[in-house]
Each structure stands twice: as C-alpha cells, then as structure tokens.
Amino acid sequence: MPDVKRRYVIPGEVVAEGNHRPIANVLRVGEKFYSTRVGMAEVGHEGVRVIPLSGPYIPRVDDLVVGKVVDYSAFAWEVDINSCFFAFLPAQSVFGRDFSPAEDTLTSKFAIGDILAARVIAFDRTRDPLLGIAGPGLGRIPRGETVKITPTKVPRLIGKRGSMIRTIEMATNCRLTIGQNGVVVVNGAPEGVVMSIKAIKLVEEEAHSADLTQKVQTLLMVPAGAQA
C-alpha cells in the first residue's frame, strides 16, 4: 500500500479530515476523525484506522484463542481468555447433542487448569463470548510453554501471511499456537522453546520497529536472505 499515510497518534489527535470511512479505533465528529488509542494512524483508500500499541483483548467471532479452564458448572466450562470477559464452552459442543448433565461428567473432558485452543463462535455486547472446539488443532493442549504478549501485537508475531511465525518455527524446530488473545503456546525441544520465547519477547518489545524480521533472524541466527 504505497499511498497509505502513517503517523504516530495519541487519543484525541485528529487523524484525518474529510470524507473517509472509519475502520477501527477512530471517532468521527463532524468532518474530523479523532484517534481513540495510542498507535499508528493509517489514512488510505480503504479508510481511516489506528493500529493500537496497547490495550485489552476484545473477542471477535472466529478468533482463535488460547484459554485456561477456571471453573465449570453442570452445563459449561468457564474459560479465562485473557480478556475482560470470561468465555463459556458449552458441554453440548464437546459431548455432542445427546449430552446429559446427569450422565456425563464435565471433568472427564477438561479439568480446571487445562489449557485449551478454541474458536470464538459467538460474542456481542450483551453476552459473554461462547467458545467452540470443533476444528483441526482445537481442544486441550496437553503440553507446552505458555507465553503472554500484548494482544495488539499478535498480528506482528504472525507476520505477513504467517512469515514471522514460520521463521521462528523453522529456526527453532518448535510449534507455535498463537491465540488472538495474546497467549502463545510453544511446543518442542527445551533449547528450541527457550529460543522461541526469546524471539516472541523480541517481537513484543520491538513490534513497531521497521527491521523486525531482520532482528528476529539475527537472534535466531537465520542466514540473511533465507525465506521462511
């Protein structure tokens, strides 16, 4: 996007004026678009948006999240998804339609403290997020190291079409499960896990710098110019 104008903004700063489409984190008052977050403002053909550099995770439908089971009732598990809302995983979506609270025990599937990869299947202003574990790679994560990063920096960790995640995975021989909520699970040999975590922390600290890919490659000792 060569014709996109970028600059750093703080809440209340005017990002653009005139006839634009507000995309994210901007407030339109009359003809003016004000930033609502600290971040990088982009004004382009598509519209006006601010890419935030800090902030909580607000669930969106279809997001992949990594959460921890914190409680359960007769019908559902309560999952901490690193957000201001606790998520619910209904027992019926795990046991199937013939789930019976009298016969099926929820702890036979997931216990308190289990780490899950799940997808947000429903969420809006009026209700807590609803999770589902139907799909490849979803469900309980039996082993691995969890790392938390700022949720707003997850796109940077994934990289353009998954380039950053591939670079880290190939250099360290580990598997990364990245939740949109900022929780990452790293699986692999201990040395690889240590290197991966270092790389993830580097991405978080340097998320706004231009030569991030190069810095990560230097850390992981990937030969310059190697394609992930």
Binding site: P11, N25, Y34, R37, S54, T152
Partner: peptide
Amino acid sequence: LADAGINMRDL
C-alpha cells in the same frame, strides 16, 4: 488510561 489502551475521546 491511554497507556492501558482504553478507548478515549481525548486526553
């Protein structure tokens, strides 16, 4: 509040 990433109209 701005540091916490909470949506604000202005400082």
